[in-house]
Simulated assay, not measured.
Amino acid sequence: MTQDVNFCWDQAQLHQDRADATDLPNVRAVALAAALSWRKEAEIAQRVADRRDRRSAVPAPLY
């Protein structure tokens, strides 16, 4: 299942904020890794959405 782009960016920001707010190095490391993963997922979701929009904009050929 493909995640929504906005959901992915929200999750990335949530984990980035968590990393910024903690003094614990292990919590920071995990939160930063999660934020990076969600950013990558957001980029993938954006490419999928763009591709879907391009495909729906192209009219079907008439035979």
Rank of each mutant, 00 (worst) to 15 (best):
N6Y: 04
A45M: 02
V30N: 07
W9P: 00
D17T: 12
A35I: 02
P25C: 04
A35Y: 00
A35L: 02
D20W: 05
D20P: 00
A57Q: 15
K40R: 10
D50F: 06
V27S: 10
P25M: 09
R28C: 02
A21F: 01
V58L: 11
L62C: 11
D10S: 14
T2H: 04
S56K: 12
D23S: 14
D4K: 03
A34R: 02
L14P: 01
P59C: 08
R55H: 07
K40S: 08
R28A: 05
P61L: 15
V58M: 04
W9F: 12
V48G: 01
E43Y: 07
R51C: 09
R54S: 08
S37N: 05
A49Y: 01
L36Y: 11
L32V: 10
A21R: 12
L36A: 14
S56E: 15
R47V: 05
L24W: 05
V5R: 03
L32W: 04
R51Q: 07
A33R: 03
Q3V: 07
F7G: 10
S37H: 07
M1G: 13
V30D: 04
L24S: 13
L32A: 08
D53Q: 05
C8E: 00
L62I: 14
W38S: 00
R54A: 06
P25L: 07
Y63H: 11
S56R: 13
A34T: 09
D53H: 05
D17G: 14
N6G: 13
R39M: 10
S37R: 07
A33E: 15
D20Y: 02
L32Y: 08
A35R: 00
R39C: 04
L24N: 13
V58E: 14
V30W: 10
D50C: 06
L32F: 07
N6S: 07
V58C: 12
D23L: 08
A31W: 00
V5C: 02
K40N: 13
Q46V: 04
Q16Y: 06
R28H: 10
C8Q: 01
L32M: 09
D23G: 14
D4N: 12
A12N: 01
L24F: 12
V58G: 13
Y63I: 12
A34E: 09
A19M: 13
V27T: 04
D4A: 11
D50Y: 02
V27C: 08
L24V: 14
Q3W: 09
V27M: 10
S37C: 03
A35G: 03
A57I: 01
V5F: 04
A21G: 06
F7S: 03
A34Y: 05
D10N: 08
R52S: 09
A35P: 02
R54N: 12
K40F: 09
Y63C: 06
F7C: 06
R47P: 00
F7D: 03
A29E: 14
K40Y: 11
D53R: 04
P59V: 03
T2M: 13
H15A: 07
D23W: 11
Q13C: 07
R54K: 10
K40G: 15
S56D: 15
L36T: 12
E43S: 10
V30I: 15
A31R: 01
E41D: 06
A29C: 07
Q11D: 05
Q16A: 15
A33T: 11
A34Q: 13
A29T: 11
A31M: 07
S56M: 12
